[in-house]
């Protein structure tokens, strides 16, 4: 059963300490902190949608390249071997460690892919004045999937592995490793330029009738 929204949409509760307070109107670049526990409640980003969209398009291209080409190779006494990002998970699966293989596949390939894909869908849908309902659904699952997207952790792991192996064989970093290195910074930039609250304020509500009950003024100004 849907809850009733409050007549005043500027009233919020701090997610860290639950204190009720009024959210001031923020100019681009400004942020608001909780009156009691001092945690940041919201940051208003400048030109968020366009910047994040540009970054996300770049991220999707890098993601595809990173998963299509070899990540690291090895040369020892005239023999060569190489592996891709997915190759690591595949090897675990074939060696009988399916549970860890699935975890690696999920955190290194599936979750980052969903993260970028969801973000692309959210941003394209939000180009409209009143983003459709599915934008809200993607946005709701975006946070949950991001926790499990661990490209930066994987890169650190790969670098450690690379140096370990370098003791007894010649290691050859693949193109994918450099691409993933760039992707980490782009994902970090997406996270810092994205303003979910801006989209929540415009998106079509799950319970459409209650939306009309709340502050019709915002509808006009948007």
């Amino acid at each position: 059963m849907y809850n009733q929204p409050l007549p005043d949409p500027s009233l919020v509760a701090c997610p860290h300490c639950d204190t009720l307070q009024r959210m001031p109107d923020l100019s681009p670049g400004e942020s608001a902190r909780c009156t009691r526990c001092d945690e940041e409640l919201r940051r208003h980003h400048k030109d968020s949608l366009q910047r994040t969209l540009a970054l996300t398009l770049a991220a999707s291209i890098l993601y595809i390249v990173a998963n299509a080409v070899p990540m690291l190779g090895l040369q020892v006494v005239g023999r060569q071997a190489f592996t891709t990002v997915i190759g690591g998970a595949e090897h675990l699966w074939n060696a009988g460690w399916q549970s860890v293989g699935i975890l690696v596949l999920f955190t290194a390939v599936v979750a980052p892919g969903l993260q970028i894909g969801f973000m692309l869908a959210i941003l394209i849908g939000s180009l409209r004045k009143r983003p459709p309902r599915w934008v809200g659904t993607f946005l709701r699952y975006y946070r949950k999937i991001t926790t499990w997207s661990m490209i930066e952790v994987m890169i650190l792991g790969v670098l450690v592995a690379l140096i370990k192996i370098a003791d007894y064989a010649k290691v050859v970093p693949g193109i994918s490793l450099y691409v993933l290195g760039a992707l980490i910074f782009i994902i970090a930039a997406i996270e810092s330029s994205f303003d979910p609250q801006d989209i929540w304020e415009r998106v079509k509500w799950a319970d459409a009738p209650s939306r009309r009950a709340v502050n019709p003024i915002t509808e006009v100004t948007r």
Binding site: L74, A81, T83, V153, V158, A169
Partner: peptide
């Protein structure tokens, strides 16, 4: 919390790369 996964990735990619039977 997520950074603890480092060792899982180290072992995964070490194992998938170092397959030089019968050397190592």
């Amino acid at each position: 919390g997520r950074w603890s996964m480092v060792d899982v990735f180290v072992d995964t990619y070490t194992a998938s790369l170092v397959q030089l039977q019968p050397l190592m």
